[in-house]
Computed example of a mutant assay.
Amino acid sequence: MASNGRDSAGNIVSQLSQLADRHLYLVRSISTGLAIAGAFLFAKSIKLTTKFTNAKGIPEKFIRKNVKLQGKLRCITEQGLEVEHIPITLPIVSFFQKKWHSDGSLLIRLAGVELTGCGKIWLRNRLHPSQMLWFQLLSREDSVLDCFILVHRRGLFNECLNVEILRQGLGKVSRVPRIDEHPTLWKFYKRLLQAEVKAQKKGKGMWKRESQLNMLTNKMLNNNIVQKLKQLASNIVNYWKKYRT
Rank of each mutant, 00 (worst) to 15 (best):
M1G: 13
M1Q: 12
S3G: 07
N4I: 04
D7I: 12
S8Y: 11
G10V: 14
S14T: 07
H23K: 15
Y25F: 12
L26G: 14
S31R: 13
T32V: 14
L34W: 06
A35E: 10
A35V: 06
K47E: 07
L48H: 12
K51G: 03
F52R: 01
T53S: 07
T53Y: 04
K56Q: 13
K56E: 08
G57C: 06
G57S: 14
I58L: 10
F62D: 11
R64K: 15
N66T: 10
K72C: 03
I76T: 03
L81G: 00
P87E: 13
F95T: 09
F96C: 05
K99C: 05
K99N: 09
W100E: 12
H101R: 08
S102V: 04
D103W: 08
D103N: 15
L107E: 03
A111N: 06
V113T: 07
T116W: 03
K120C: 04
L127V: 05
L127K: 02
Q131K: 08
Q136M: 10
R140Q: 15
E141L: 08
L145C: 03
C147A: 14
I149D: 02
L150Q: 08
L150S: 06
V151Y: 00
C160W: 00
L161Y: 00
N162G: 03
N162S: 06
E181Q: 15
H182G: 00
K190G: 04
L192T: 01
E196F: 00
V197S: 10
Q200M: 15
G203H: 06
K204N: 10
R209Q: 13
E210K: 07
S211T: 05
Q212S: 10
L213G: 04
L213F: 12
L213N: 11
T217W: 09
M220D: 11
L221A: 06
L229K: 09
S234V: 05
Y239N: 15
W240E: 12
K242T: 10
R244P: 00
T245G: 13
